[in-house]
Design a protein around this nucleic acid. Structure first.
Length: 215
DNA sequence: TGCCAGGCCGGGT
DNA sequence: ACCCGGCATGGC
C-alpha cells in the first residue's frame, strides 16, 4: 500500500523536524548497548541507568565478568532495573552465547549476515524480537527497524494497523516504506519512543501532538 | 496514590 | 497460532 508508505515517511519527517535528532543509543560501546537492551525490557530507562552504573562500578560490565559472577550477586547489582531475577538469568544467557559463538567479542557478530544472526539471537533465553533487533540496529548498526509498544500504539491510533498486527508485520511496513539506512531506522525508532513518552501515552495528548491526528 | 515503563517466557487453550 | 499471568523497581 503506497499510501501507508508515504504516511510513514511523513511521520518521520514531522517527528525529526519537531524533536530533532535523538542520538541513540545512550551507551558506551556495543556490549553496553546489548546489556541495556535486555535490562530495559518493559522498564524505564532511568532505572536501567542505575543498574548499568552499578555494573560499571563493580567493574563487571564485560562478558567474562558477568559470566563468572554468581547469579544472586548479579541480580543484586541490577536490582533497580526491576525483574532482577529473570534479567540476571537473561544477562548470563546472553554472555554465554557471546562467549560460545563469538569468543565473547560482540564486534565479531557484525560479520554474520542479518537473517541468521537474528535467528540465533532469538534462540537465546530472554531475547525476543525487539531485543534482538535493538542489538542488531543499535549495537551493530545493521539496517533493522525496531518495533515496540509505542510503535504499535501510534500506528494503531493512526489506523495504519489493527491491534492484532504481529511484530514482523509492523516491521515490514517500515522496511518497505524507508530505505534500509541504519541512521534513519535509528532515529525513527528513537523518535517514536520520544513521541510515545511525550504525547502518545495510554491517555494521549492528541491536541499537542506534532502528528495531530483528527479524532 | 496508583499508573506506567524502550518485553519475554511458559503453560494453557 | 494466540492469550494470559508472572516477573519488580522507581519516578511522576
Amino acid at each position: 500500500m503506497n499510501k501507508k508508505k508515504r504516511y510513514l515517511k511523513e511521520i518521520f519527517v514531522k517527528l525529526f523536524g519537531f524533536f530533532g535528532p535523538q542520538h541513540w543509543w545512550p551507551a558506551d560501546g556495543p556490549f553496553e548497548v546489548a546489556i541495556g537492551a535486555i535490562l530495559t525490557q518493559n522498564t524505564n530507562w532511568q532505572n536501567v541507568e542505575k543498574a548499568i552504573s552499578n555494573l560499571k562500578n563493580q567493574g563487571i560490565l564485560n562478558a567474562e565478568a558477568i559470566h563468572s559472577t554468581p547469579l544472586q550477586t548479579l541480580a543484586r547489582f541490577i536490582k533497580p532495573a526491576g525483574y532482577y531475577n529473570v534479567k540476571a538469568r537473561r544477562l548470563k544467557a546472553f554472555v554465554q552465547f557471546l562467549i560460545e559463538e563469538f569468543r565473547g567479542k560482540i564486534e565479531e557478530m557484525a560479520s554474520e549476515d542479518i537473517p541468521s544472526l537474528r535467528k540465533k539471537l532469538l534462540q537465546v533465553y530472554g531475547i525476543g524480537p525487539e531485543t534482538a533487533d535493538s542489538i542488531l540496529l543499535y549495537a551493530l548498526n545493521k539496517p533493522v527497524f525496531v518495533v515496540d509498544a509505542y510503535t504499535k500504539r501510534i500506528l494503531s491510533r493512526h489506523g495504519l494497523i489493527n491491534k492484532k498486527a504481529s511484530y514482523e508485520e509492523i516491521q515490514s511496513l517500515f522496511h518497505q516504506a524507508m530505505e534500509p539506512d541504519p541512521f534513519i531506522y535509528n532515529e525513527y525508532h528513537a523518535l517514536i519512543v520520544k513521541l510515545g513518552k511525550t504525547f502518545c501515552r495510554p491517555r494521549p495528548l492528541c491536541r499537542e501532538c506534532p502528528l495531530r491526528i483528527a479524532r
